[in-house]
Every structure is written in C-alpha cells, then in structure tokens.
Design a protein around this nucleic acid. Structure first.
Length: 217
DNA sequence: TGATAGATCGGCT
DNA sequence: GCCGATCTATCAG
C-alpha cells in the first residue's frame, strides 16, 4: 500500500527521485560507497521491484582488474561513455553483471552492483530467480541481474531517465559507521585497492560466510 | 559448514 | 585457445 505518485517524482526530497548526473560524475570509489543505501528500481515488468543497495565495487581506468584497463573495445565502450548509464556484460557463459558508469565522459570507470536488500516486488524476484529465500534473491552480481530481469539488451541504458523504468533513486544513504570496505571479489592483488563496499552485518551481501560470527559471540 | 569442481560462451590474445 | 568482476551442486569432515 503506497501513496500514488502523480508527477511529483522530480522532487529532490522524494526518496524515489532518480539520482542526477552529478552523482555519477565522480571517482568510482566515491560513487561506490555513496551508492550504499540507495534504491535500485525496476518497473518494466509485472510490478515494481525495489531493492536497497548493500554491496558495490569500484573499477577505475588503469586498474588491471577493470575491463577498461586495455582501452576501449566494442564490448566495454559504454564504460568509456557518459556517466549515469548502465554497463552490462555477460560472463562465465551464463551470468550477467550490471555496472553504473562513473567519472567523466571518455574515462573508463564504473561501479559493479553486487547485492541489494529486496524491499518491494519480492514475488516478482522469486519468479525470475526460481528461489524463495530472500537472502538468495539478490546477493551477487549474477543473481541481482536475474532478479531484476537485466540482460545484454540493457547495456548502455540511461539511468538518469526514471521514465525508462530502470533507475537508481536517492533512497536513504548509509551512514559511515555502517559501511565497510574490503578487497574486491575475484580480483588479484585485491588488497591494494579495497574498493568493495558493503553494509556491515547485512545478510543480503554476497560472500558473508567466511568468519561469520553469530550474535552473542 | 566449508571447500572444490563443473557448467558454458563471448571477448580478447 | 584461454580465461573470467559467477552460481550451484556435491563431497568431505
């Protein structure tokens, strides 16, 4: 049960208003951390799907782990384009990963969205994923794309346009004390650039098992 | 509960 | 030809 939004969604204080271009036009590690707590919204399918971003990773040009490291190619060209667009690629023969292009036009930097906490449209996500357990719906880049119905066709998608039905809304940014940083997943020499950002203690992030502590000890 | 291998294919060398 | 910003099933303990 939500109040109807009748053309008021451009208001700055509306948590469902899309983030502006200036938000993305900053260095990717800055954007990655600032994305925590924001809302990933999709309303192109059977119902509105909303999730709170709890995990992200930054990739910079000149970073050996980044697709943009060896310069522009047909595959990664979106990464070198204007900030605020989505870079979607296919990997491991079966998974998609979605990124948000950051920095300035011509620079190959982006932020990988790794996990969100499902808030709305749980049934839609379950249907797309084929699983029911909430922590398994969007905890990982491949799962996230599947839950949101995002694929190669969305490469280059404009996130600044909320009318497109897929965008990131302002939400409620995560406070500093609840945000943690660490080495990126699957990246060699990962410790040198601790550009994975996540919400401390969230059960909706990926890779939470090692060293997991239960409350009380 | 934690570690490991297999699936599967587009892009780059 | 090889490798990968992954996920899942399966096995061992």
């Amino acid at each position: 049960m939500k109040p109807q939004r009748t053309g008021q969604h451009e208001r700055e204080d509306d948590p469902l208003s899309p983030l502006a271009a200036s938000f993305y036009a900053r260095p990717s590690p800055v954007v990655a951390r600032d994305l925590l707590g924001r809302l990933l919204v999709e309303e192109r399918g059977p119902g509105r799907v909303v999730g709170r971003i709890v995990e992200s990773e930054a990739y910079e040009e000149g970073d050996p782990a980044s697709h943009s490291f060896r310069g522009p190619t047909p595959r990664n060209s979106v990464m070198f384009g204007a900030p605020g667009r989505m870079y979607v690629y296919f990997t491991y023969g079966m998974h998609h990963c979605m990124n948000v292009v950051t920095g300035s036009d011509g620079e190959g930097s982006a932020v990988l969205l790794r996990a969100v906490e499902p808030l709305e449209g749980i049934d839609v996500m379950c249907g797309r994923r084929g699983v029911a357990a909430r922590p398994l719906l969007c905890s990982g880049p491949g799962r996230l794309c599947q839950a949101y119905g995002v694929g190669r066709a969305d490469n280059g998608h404009d996130l600044l346009d909320s009318a497109s039905g897929l965008f990131i809304a302002a939400g409620d940014p995560l406070s500093r004390e609840h945000a943690a940083a660490g080495p990126r997943v699957g990246v060699r020499e990962a410790a040198e650039r601790p550009w994975r950002f996540f919400e401390e203690g969230s059960v909706y992030v990926s890779r939470r098992s090692p060293g997991r502590r239960r409350p009380g000890r």
